[in-house]
């Protein structure tokens, strides 16, 4: 990967690694990815918030012919996930097989490897979603 591109990814580490969003101080709308101007009321008064990472699958597809940097991961599910705070995120699903995915499936955010460009390039990490972990409390 050309060194120039590193800064492009580095700038978004906060949202990619831990799903940091923004909340409009004026109207309360929550955005992901973060925004500097509210697309609801036009206010520039925004604060950073930590999203819970919990959501539901709205729709999905299976990627079988991936773009460069994703080849080794194929086939992989790509989904629209509606976060419990409202925003809809496009993300990969992980730790799940095709036949287990369903509309409305409850998922949670995990930070995983997203993409590699070459053996000597940087590794990009970011959010993916997996089925909610079953615990002994459930």
């Amino acid at each position: 990967m050309p060194a120039m591109q590193v800064s492009r990814y580095w700038r978004h580490f906060k949202e990619k690694y831990r799903l940091a969003g923004t909340k409009c101080k004026k109207c309360g709308k929550i955005h992901f990815p973060p925004r500097q101007v509210c697309n609801e009321c036009g206010s520039r008064e925004m604060e950073e918030i930590q999203l819970s990472g919990k959501g539901k699958v709205v729709s999905w597809t299976i990627v079988r012919n991936p773009p460069s940097g994703f080849e080794y991961y194929k086939p992989y599910p790509l989904a629209l996930v509606e976060l419990e705070e409202g925003p809809i995120v496009l993300a990969q699903l992980t730790d799940v097989s095709e036949d287990e995915i369903d509309f409305g499936m409850e998922v949670e955010m995990v930070t995983r490897r997203i993409r590699e460009f070459s053996e000597d390039g940087i590794i990009l990490y970011g959010y993916k979603f997996r089925p909610v972990l079953k615990t002994s409390k459930d």
């Binding site: 690694y17 080794y72 991961y73 990969q92 992980t94 730790d95 995990v110 930070t111 995983r112 490897r113 997203i114 590794i123 990490y125 993916k128």
Partner: peptide
């Protein structure tokens, strides 16, 4: 490990 897991992602969780 999953294909998208390594020491960093395991450490994060």
């Amino acid at each position: 490990p999953g294909i998208d897991e390594d020491a960093a992602t395991i450490a994060i969780e």
